[in-house]
Design a protein around this nucleic acid. Structure first.
Lengths: 268, 268
DNA sequence: AGACTGGATTCTGGATCCAAAATACGACAG
DNA sequence: CTGTCGTATTTTGGATCCAGAATCCAGTCT
């Protein structure tokens, strides 16, 4: 089990800490080993502010506008599980933590809302999107349809050099562990496979659908994901049998979908 | 400099302040009063501003937040062609035209950017999105894939009462002329056909794809659209042959796609 | 005469301030 | 003791103000 220590360093837990027990709204205990650090009510905010400033500095290189930086930071926080699904997002707290004004935070939240990662309640603020089982199943249903089409097109127009590039990217993705590097490598692989340059909207829609469930995967890679290496997918694609490849893909997505559904309810 | 007259007049939308003569209009009075203030050296901006004021008047009541109202106004302006593709969107001009501050305009623009209707250039402002021929063809390719799937599912799970509702909605849509009423009726029809309530994301994605080309259709309904009545589609669906229905749909989309491509370049 | 550079103007993006609404807490009454 | 109403605090949404960047125009140099 991956240790949640890194997550606790974000300090973006917005629930009030009245006692010595520090949990976020999803009930996941945040850094039990760091519980003794918490002395006063504001300590978590202080810690979060310090970490986020450091992380904002880390993210700040290469970003021209503050709003886009905040957007990346918040997206990363949601996808990494630092901001749990259902968690209330107070603009003031986020702004203080990142070290900017509330305005770019609002801009970033609007962008994230359009992507479906957060939802706004009228005058009641924003929260990280939660997914019902029906929504998860629809997401994977749509992914099956879209990625099936993309895969058929990829096989239909496959060239030797592109297959070579795919193999290299697959090896790279399978070599990565968890976290950022894996996600990046996986995205590069699927971008190449699904014709990211020739069909930008398709790859964008697929990426958005994949993002929506990102918050539920937290840091953990499920067995079904592990069992399905990208190299194997390349092998099926290289075979040239579109139906077989789509079948492999559909089974894989179905397995991942079932795993995500199980993660929705912690009780099992 | 146009002095902001009654900007502090709150309760614009929801609650009506004990206004003397001003009803729950969100700064519409201000907008109409400032109609002649804009510099007259840009005629196209003049035209856009007048249209925006008209739209703002129409959309004035029934919205809780000013930002959402601005969003609806701008979206309608883009889809109706009042703001042409490629047109530069200056926040100050838009804000004055609608009669609000620049901030809700920025929020609305961010939302519209996420939907793909406008694009932001780094420090150079926003403009209405333009579509290349490749993008148009990809849009209709994806619509064929998604709507084909949706249509098959609809036929698979069709019930008599739903067929009856579809027929009523088709008659309603075919009876409408152009403009708002037609778009609304058409959306209701496809919402019912594609299972809007059971597959919200699918219908949302399809609607977004349809929106992207809305600005190029302007007010004109092409012959191919005219020739394909919604009632005929219902008849094919009622037949129960999924392959035939998908084929009809694909041909229709292909025809519309070709028509839109022709509209991209005025030369023919 | 044309091109390059520097300044001025304009526009975007960010911060701070203010008004309104919702929620939470407390007081009072049944 | 409990439920309801009123007030106060919190928080969101909007407007105005300010700084930085980009563009445009003019002046000068080649």
């Amino acid at each position: 089990m991956p240790s949640p220590v890194v997550r606790s360093e974000w300090g973006l837990v917005t629930t009030k800490v009245q006692g010595d027990r520090l949990t976020n709204s999803s009930g996941i205990e945040v850094g039990s080993g760091n519980a003794d650090i918490i002395d006063a009510d504001r300590v978590d905010v202080q810690r979060g502010k310090a970490s986020l400033e450091q992380l904002a500095r880390e993210f700040s290189s290469g970003y021209r506008s503050v709003g886009s930086m905040v957007y990346e930071v918040l997206k990363d926080a949601i996808l990494s599980g630092a901001l749990a699904p259902g968690e209330k997002l107070r603009q003031e707290t986020l702004a203080e933590a990142i070290g900017v004004s509330r305005l770019p935070v609002r801009s970033a939240l609007i962008q994230l809302e359009a992507e479906g990662l957060v939802i706004f309640h009228e005058r009641r603020g924003a929260m990280v999107s939660t997914l019902s089982e029906e929504q998860v199943r629809e997401i994977y249903e749509l992914r099956t349809v879209l990625e099936g089409f993309a895969l058929r097109e990829a096989i239909r127009t496959m060239t030797p050099d592109r297959l070579a590039r795919l193999r290299a990217l697959a090896i790279d993705a399978d070599a990565q562990g968890e976290g950022h590097a894996f996600v990046e490598a996986r995205n590069r692989f699927y971008d190449e496979l699904y014709g990211g340059e020739s069909r930008p909207m398709l790859t964008q829609i697929i990426a958005d659908l994949r993002l929506k469930v990102g918050g539920y995967l937290l840091g953990r890679r499920m067995d079904s994901v592990h069992g399905h290496s990208h190299g194997a997918l390349v092998d099926v694609v290289a075979g040239g049998d579109a139906d077989a490849a789509v079948d492999v893909l559909a089974r894989h997505l179905q397995a991942v979908c079932d795993g995500v559904v199980l993660l929705l309810e912690p009780r099992d």
